[in-house]
Nucleic acid binder design. Structure first.
Lengths: 230, 230
DNA sequence: GCAGTCCTTTACACAACCTTTACGTTGGCT
DNA sequence: AGCCAACGTAAAGGTTGTGTAAAGGACTGC
């Protein structure tokens, strides 16, 4: 069961969110004070924390900073204004995402799911993984950090290798650009950031050098997928 | 089974780490007092110790100092702040690595694996090894501590010999600069430390004198590898 | 003390890499 | 059709890691 903690002094809002999230199958708890929320979040009993920036007593950013001393529990920040400064500071302090009030419950759920899915991806990364893996004409040798096309080694940079490994380990599944950016580049995807696109472009070029059959497919607005032959 | 001991007074944190490490297949035990941890660590029942610097009662650095009187058990230090001084002192006292809180479980696991892999490398070094070894045109005679290119003896310094032997014994595998530094130079790789690069450069020059075919390949950001001809 | 050997540090050049910029293309939308 | 956001990619820009000559320092044997 996935538990979500909300720290927000707006009682009406927490009740509204409670309804939606419980409908979606989440366990939900709300508190209205910073210190109380901090203590609960530190217990690591929650898989995600919704944190309002404007809190009486202890500021939301302070709560976040203190929490990050102890825990990497995912945090989705909420704020009353579309305050760009709060946003930047929050993300720098280690928030996982940001949502401006007022938000639609639907969008909130979407953001929550995106974060949880990514956390799951990261945990998968930590699991012991297959050292060797074959997808169509691509073969991964993770011990030597090498990827082959048929019998030719791909000369990849560290970043390119990470991206392609991720796509191979999830062959047939769509991997979002956000996920790729966070897992392979180690940073959140920014607006107008074309870095990832360039890496994909370069990887494609290197693969095509040996195998013309295009492999990495673009799903516009969703991400990339390494097609599995049937 | 690899057992890890954590000495940290933050009970919530030890529980979190316990979950992650057990998920990764490690045996895990946590204690919250310095003296208690010291006694356990001295028993050599653990392959690695996670040690918090800020401990009530007995300071983490003191624990480390005392432990080093008896045991070479690898120690990964943890600290609440990004305190550079603690870091330097800790590494001088013989800690194997350092991680600032808060850390992601992912990073913790990565550091642990890096340390354990290096310990394994060191133990391999101590095992009886093949006295003679041929890699392409290079031939190792470890009884005489000599390396030949075709039939020409390489005149190597002690350090150069150690580096090249290590690369030869792991021919085809990437050997990280950190590993090379610790195993051949006997010290951790520091930022801006170019000593190892110089040794590699000199070794290359000496090999090239007899065999122009470049052998030690650089893998940017990863390390060096002695290519095996196929 | 001096010369010789070896390891390390310094300094600069360079190459590899990642990112940004800029412009062209595509595909969904009204 | 026309618009616009997302995407592809060549080229430029900036950053970081590496190669190596030369100087500096530590040690040894004489």
């Amino acid at each position: 069961m996935t538990s979500i903690l909300m720290i927000d002094d707006d009682v009406a809002l927490t009740q509204l969110v409670a309804e939606y999230l419980q409908l979606d199958g989440y366990e939900f708890k709300a508190v209205h004070q910073g210190p109380e929320g901090l203590e609960l979040a530190r217990s690591n009993a929650f898989q995600l924390v919704l944190l309002d920036i404007m809190l009486p007593g202890m500021d939301g950013l302070t709560v976040l900073k203190q929490l990050r001393q102890y825990s990497y529990c995912p945090v989705l920040m909420l704020t009353a204004r579309g305050d760009e400064i709060d946003r930047v500071v929050g993300l720098e302090l280690g928030a996982d995402d940001y949502l401006a009030k007022p938000f639609s419950p639907r969008e909130l759920v979407a953001r929550i799911k995106a974060i949880l899915r990514r956390v799951e991806l990261i945990q998968q990364q930590q699991q012991p993984q297959l050292a060797s893996l074959q997808v169509n004409s691509l073969r991964l040798d993770s011990a030597k950090r090498q990827i082959f096309v048929e019998d030719n080694v791909l000369v990849l940079t560290a970043t390119e290798y990470q991206i392609l490994e991720l796509l191979m380990r999830h062959a047939g599944d769509v991997v979002s650009k956000e996920d790729l950016s966070q897992l392979a580049l180690g940073k959140r995807l920014q607006l107008y950031d074309r870095s990832l696109d360039m890496h994909i472009s370069n990887i494609r070029k290197k693969i095509a050098h040996y195998d013309e059959a295009e492999k990495i497919q673009t799903l516009r607005g969703l991400g990339y997928v390494l097609l599995e032959g049937e």
